[in-house]
Design a protein around this nucleic acid. Structure first.
Lengths: 223, 223
DNA sequence: TGCACCATCGGGATTCACCCTGATTTGCAC
DNA sequence: GTGCAAATCAGGGTGAATCCCGATGGTGCA
């Protein structure tokens, strides 16, 4: 024991209600872990977290409207007196997501294949100050800090925010696999303009080519 | 009432244990819906379904090793005397997935943002013979039957199975956004060989270009 | 009024993706 | 051994993608 006076207070953030129920059910058998609130959207999450002041926030990384990272930033910007520790829960183990989430301030990153007991243990450890990573992810993180791995450029949301409306439109069509010619016909503009937008999108997102961009977009639920 | 003698017997298939717990918890409050078993892998699912003979199988479409469609086929091949009805549960609402799942024999397709009451109602309806679709998906299905929509080619798993080990390896690297040159260096082979493999992969998966292929792969959790 | 940003195009050049034909070697099965 | 699939590579070609340069008009803001 580290001298805690009560249970670990946990707040759940995930846009899938059924998944939140699952976490609740799994954690119900853990006497020292208490779910004090949950939310299914970014704005609800930020408000709920500030109000309930949990020890740990279990955060789905891939959510609409900016994703879990937006929640992380929103809470950080509000600067509560007892800031929670963030533990990312994700179906993805893409290195980009891991790095981005950690840089945004999460203390751990586990995939959703985890079971209830492991999840509870992860909650305790991050609350007590440890960093927790799924086995497959630990390698990415270590390699990235030692600089020994060709880790892809981390992609945070500022890149997405920096896109103009027209560029977002082009990005969506690019991610769907359309050629420049098809996009030009769809938007009723010339191929040259599409090229310009695409080039800007690639530069702003720091992706090297269309395929990396497609991956990047799909992982962010841009369809 | 349609004259049923007992509760709706449901079997859960999802590789995320926490999600299965969530479904259990959500359905626990429904008196006429009973969860009779669950599985986290394709082989376990097929065995468990054949043994427990449920009325309805709730199926995650995106699972490792062939996905939910493999479960559907495995059960169909076994031809049990009382075959269950399949209801697909997925985070994806991509038209390709919907069409492929329906063609494989599912009676409904709902996204995981559904809540417990809706899920229970969906279970009852498919068990009673209805087809059930999330609002956003209904359009896709109707359009595809009226032939009025440019529905993408449905992609089933035989295409994935037909890939050779080397082609799978190349596919993984393609899906990560590497260029042919980078893949060649990584695998220590010539660019020409990479081109051959890539060309074979595109033909076998029936994708028209790298970007569509990247989407295809990412949607199948190939990283 | 001036400046910055956005959206729109063009010329020109390079690289990449993709296809076709054809070839060799290896290993495994019949 | 014969046959076949898999993996390897080459030449040559077309179109797409990407980047570089520059240019125009509109919009909003100091």
């Amino acid at each position: 024991m580290t001298g805690r006076s009560g249970p670990y207070r946990v707040f759940l953030v995930d846009d899938h209600g059924v998944f939140r129920s699952g976490v609740r059910a799994e954690l119900a058998s853990e006497a020292d872990v208490q779910v004090v609130g949950e939310a299914g959207s970014v704005v609800d999450a930020i408000a709920g977290i500030l109000q309930s002041a949990p020890d740990v926030v279990l955060l789905d990384v891939h959510m609409p409207a900016g994703g879990g990272i937006a929640v992380l930033r929103g809470v950080a910007d509000a600067a509560p007196s007892n800031p929670p520790v963030f533990l990312a829960l994700s179906v993805s183990d893409a290195a980009e997501d891991v790095i981005a989430t950690i840089r945004a301030g999460a203390r751990g990153y586990v995939t959703k294949t985890i079971d209830g007991a492991e999840l509870a243990e992860s909650v305790r450890r991050v609350a007590d100050g440890d960093a927790v990573f799924s086995p497959r992810l630990a390698g990415f993180v270590l390699d990235s800090f030692t600089g020994r791995s060709p880790v892809p450029e981390p992609q945070l949301d500022p890149e997405l925010d920096s896109l103009t409306p027209r560029e977002m439109e082009v990005l969506r069509l690019l991610a769907r696999g359309f050629t420049y010619r098809e996009i030009a016909e769809d938007l009723v503009i010339s191929i040259k303009t599409v090229e310009t937008h695409a080039s800007n999108v690639l530069r702003k997102t720091q992706q090297s080519n269309r395929n990396a961009l497609t991956r990047w977009a799909v992982n962010r639920h841009i369809h």
